[in-house]
Design a protein around this nucleic acid. Structure first.
Lengths: 329, 329
DNA sequence: GGGAATTGTGGTATCGATACCACACACCTG
DNA sequence: CAGGTGTGTGGTATCGATACCACAATTCCC
């Protein structure tokens, strides 16, 4: 690999001068600049970011830790983060915990060893080890999706969104409403959305039926199974089901189709997340748009502001959401 | 940020010794080792990969260039690549061209400046500038998806897959078969799959109807529009449609639903890619599984072999595929 | 018992860039 | 014309790790 010294030699200049040309800093005569640029062009020289950042203490890389890549939500978030950061000359280095929460800390360390300028963590849970790591990290961190006191976070209004969606279902004349959630280790999705559902029932004076409350796990398959479980175990059948993700909803819908339950006439269903496909399935899915693109953008901006010292104190940003009414209710 | 020297001082040893402890190399007495590890533990010291790789000329990072993140195919590929590389202690740095083919070269340079040990490019096209860059790159490159002579590639059997799928449709009694493809700048998907379709028609003695051949662009929306265009412009209507991706197929299916065309009775449809959702829509989609996970795994292995010098000559790997028969045909 | 091999440790150069200082020269300016 | 300012260039230390050598102490083996 060719280095700055060799360029200097070929261009009959010092490495200091070449560095000045590369960074447009300090004084360089037009003549010398041209000579150096010509050599760079001819040799195809690419400066080592490695060496540069060792000296400057800045890598222009942001580490992004995600629970899994294969969902619409994550890929949209990552896309938005990437786009926004790329504008400012940053790149992302991606690591994937594959939903193993215990790996989050390990990944934070891994990324810190790469001297990333900042970290964005799409969190699925909050535990003490993680909390300690985040709090002690000298590297700026922004967390998406879970609220953590004392840490910069970007969160959804999970409780309100779930509550409002449940109210919408109630307004449509339902009072036998099932719920498919996820495990409570996920505070935002597992606890808050469920709380929103319960609050809405409560507000409308509808009693809770435990037989209609089951858990899935962020994929089609467990959505299908959860629906099956709900229908098989309940003595009275629900006429509507609130699910906490579109993926779960689509899995559940397959069960309904298989059992010739008409949607929404026999049973209504809602998702959350506004995945792209939710609009194209039949019937199209009533869901909640959490504005992932904007969330990613905000996260990118926030981390850059923290890095630049413009944001000193932990900041909490609550994203807006939109209910998207379609044909499944 | 704490450095190896400070650890050395605190542990009453030299940085050489600390380095030996960190890398399990050379001789270190059990006593000293413990002392050093204790200090590392207490201080939360994380060695700088930066500095390390400057010296060792190895970053253990692979650059991955993708056209877009939001499709099932890419995210599965990236996931598989990531999993396989993580096993060997590698990380990936991801860049996204957002389907701007002209940015691919720029991204290659960007990643090379980060001294990545290797590159994996999920290619959507092949042009001269790109070709030149790849051929001249001192950094090992593996290309996925497009065949490039003289370069290590992992490709699908696009022609055969499309041909076989078309034959399957013909066997189901159709002879008015439409085709939704993509632009021919994408050799694999745009040219080869179309060629497979045409070859199958030809083999069965079915004449080609240009009105039934339209282009989309890898998303639901253009799939919908392509279907609409096909139906509106054709004098005789097709009874089956072959599409080149699941996403396009699902977009097209929405058009059919809206116009009360029963699938597969009024019109049959097939996708390609075996996206997760293809199994859960109604009717479930007949598609082709290109074994993305395995492709990603192969790509990861191949790049590592090239890096390790085990693979000297450009290698071409053709992936297998499986036709997945479901209810849409 | 003496030379070789093994074990343990530290010192120093180095990777490839930038930061900072020193210095030379030209040109103003009062 | 002395001194300040702006311009252009090079030398050297440095970032934080590893590689490699030197050397001392201990153990081994014929």
């Amino acid at each position: 690999m060719i280095t700055i010294k060799e360029i200097a030699k070929l261009a009959n200049a010092s490495s200091s001068t070449v560095s000045r040309v590369l960074n447009d800093s300090g004084y360089v005569s037009e003549e010398t600049r041209k000579r150096v640029l010509k050599v760079i062009e001819e040799t195809g020289y690419i400066p080592s970011e490695q060496a540069k950042s060792l000296r400057t203490k800045k890598t222009s890389v942001i580490g992004v830790i995600i629970p899994r890549l294969s969902t619409d939500t994550t890929s949209r978030l990552v896309n938005a983060i990437n786009d926004e950061l790329a504008k400012k000359g940053y790149q992302i280095i991606l690591t994937n915990t594959n939903l193993h929460a215990e790996k989050e800390v390990e990944h934070i360390k891994l990324l810190r060893s790469r001297q990333v300028d900042g970290l964005i963590l799409i969190a699925t849970n909050v535990n003490d080890v993680l909390l300690k790591e985040i709090r002690n990290s000298p590297t700026p961190i922004v967390v998406i999706g879970q609220e953590i006191p004392g840490v910069s976070v970007i969160v959804n209004r999970d409780f309100e969104a779930a509550k409002q969606m449940t109210q919408l279902i109630i307004e449509n004349g339902h009072n036998k409403i099932g719920f498919i959630g996820v495990h409570e280790t996920d505070k935002a999705v597992g606890v808050d959305r469920k709380a929103g559902y319960l609050a809405a029932l409560n507000g409308a004076g509808i009693p809770v039926n435990e037989q209609w409350i089951v858990d899935a796990n962020f994929d089609y398959q467990t959505g299908y199974r959860a629906m099956k479980q709900m229908m098989e175990q309940s003595t009275i059948k629900p006429t509507a089901v609130l699910t906490v993700t579109d993926t779960i909803a689509i899995g559940a819908m397959q069960y309904m189709h298989e059992h010739h339950l008409a949607i929404p006439d026999d049973i209504a269903i809602t998702g959350m997340g506004n995945s792209k496909v939710s609009q194209y399935i039949v019937p199209s899915l009533t869901t909640i748009d959490f504005l992932n693109e904007q969330t990613g953008k905000e996260a990118a901006r926030l981390i850059l502001n923290i890095i630049d010292g413009k944001e000193k104190r932990p900041k909490k940003i609550q994203m807006k959401y939109r209910i998207i009414k379609r044909d499944s209710v």
